[in-house]
Amino acid sequence: MGGVKTAPPILTTALDRLIGRAIQRAGGWLPFDRFMALALYAPGMGYYANASRKFGHMPSSGSDFVTAPELTPLFGQALAVQVDEALKQTGTDEVWEFGAGSGALALQLLDTLGERIARYRIVDLSGSLRVRQQETLAAHAGKVEWLSELPAAMRGVVVGNEVLDAMPVQLLARAGGHWFERGVVAGAQGGWAWEDRPTLLRPPLDIEGEHDYLTEIHPQAQAFVATLADRLTQGAAFLIDYGFPESEYYHPQRHMGTVMCHQGHQADGDPLVAVGAKDITAHVDFTGIALAAQDAGLAVLGYASQGRFLINCGLLALSDQASIAQRALAAHLVHEHEMGELFKVIALGAGEPWEPLGFAEGDRSHTL
């Protein structure tokens, strides 16, 4: 059985000690969003801050999961068609990418758009991933700039693939008709354990029924969008991720929440073990993202399934010119039972609203 990784013991121990001190300072109970933030982003120790390999096709590579740009360059080539239109519509010449991963998407966009992009700026908190991105993008070194935080003002086209799902979430649990916030405490036998505390927090929708129910709320993702709105003076943003509108997200039957972990191309639902050695994610509430954007002054330009968006951007025509192997991989991007339906694309605009070609057919903005 190859491919399932564990973090080096010294890393796990150091991260555990850091989390333990955070729990002590918080009075013995740490809200899950703070635990998730440390598990993923603690400098040098969290999953996205340590040196482990994360992105790859197979567990034999030591990777944990594959994203669309790593699956096939046709993803970035199709997205480039939309980015090109957005640059023209907004009168800008810069692309900003959040959470650039291995750098695969940046390379695809830069290779495809060439001189259309004057500057490519990557905002990424991970120092280890930055090194990998620099290697991947060596041919475009003169155009690429890395930032660890947003500037006071920015213009251009923003892209973010699987960024929102990695933002820490708060867990809300209903038991016996009462709502609790779920947090983390030190376990009696070592390690970490769950503990629920009464809370006034609620999901954005009333959950029908009296059954026990676990779900997430997304203040950090919504705050990110509000900050983006504050800084983006002219341009557009295209955010791609797995998730639902709130009517589906908070459906009575979705009673186990959406938090999921990924390690060695295997998924599990326990973020309290192998901390720092695996990814922790939650699905995106796209209604919450849209409302946060509108409240902060951005327009919602479109919302569609990834499959429909990529087809609108010409993926099928691009596939016709590709190898049989690449066509098969591209099919994963659009098939409903693969990534085509679970993943969605939301477009946000600063400035005069316009209609992006990626939403020419199949726009679902009315469902948000």
Score class of each variant (00 low, 15 high):
G362L: 05
W354A: 04
R308Q: 15
R182M: 07
S126Q: 07
F35T: 01
A42K: 06
E94F: 15
D363P: 01
G176A: 14
M167Y: 14
A350C: 14
L291F: 05
F286A: 06
N312H: 05
D64E: 03
V184P: 09
A100G: 06
S102C: 10
A330V: 01
L15D: 11
G101W: 02
I289M: 11
H366R: 15
L71V: 03
I346S: 12
M339N: 10
P31M: 02
G235E: 09
L239M: 10
Q321R: 12
S102G: 12
H211V: 01
E115M: 11
H337S: 14
E145M: 12
A86I: 02
W179E: 10
D270Y: 03
P271E: 07
E195T: 04
F180T: 06
L125D: 09
D84W: 10
F55S: 03
V184R: 04
Q134F: 07
I10H: 13
E208R: 10
D196V: 05
E145P: 06
D270N: 14
H57R: 10
F35H: 01
I324T: 08
T6I: 10
E85W: 08
L329S: 08
W96T: 11
Y250S: 12
Y120H: 14
A296F: 13
A141K: 07
V163G: 03
I23R: 11
G190L: 00
T258C: 05
L125P: 04
L239D: 00
A282G: 14
F75M: 05
G28R: 09
A325I: 00
A290G: 15
A282M: 11
V157H: 09
G127Q: 02
V144T: 11
D206Q: 15
V259E: 00
G27R: 08
G191K: 12
I217G: 01
I240N: 11
P73H: 01
L239Q: 03
R202Y: 02
A304I: 03
D279E: 13
V4Q: 11
R155Q: 11
T199E: 07
L357G: 09
V144W: 06
L74G: 03
V225E: 02
V273R: 11
T112Q: 14
G56I: 03
T227M: 12
V163C: 04
P245F: 06
T136S: 13
D33P: 04
L239V: 02
L214I: 01
Q294C: 15
L11K: 08
H57C: 03
G349P: 01
L214C: 00
C261R: 01
G103Y: 05
L87P: 02
S61I: 00
G56F: 05
A350T: 04
A267N: 05
P73D: 00
E246L: 04
M58C: 02
P151L: 03
A68Q: 07
P356V: 07
P59L: 02
G2N: 15
R132A: 15
W179K: 12
W192A: 00
A104Y: 00
L147R: 12
T13G: 09
W179P: 09
G349W: 03
V83Q: 05
G56K: 07
A292V: 10
G243F: 01
V158D: 01
E181V: 08
A331T: 11
I217V: 14
V284G: 05
A223D: 15
P73N: 05
Q82S: 13
V184T: 08
Q306P: 07
Q253N: 13
E135K: 13
E246V: 03
Q133S: 03
H366P: 01
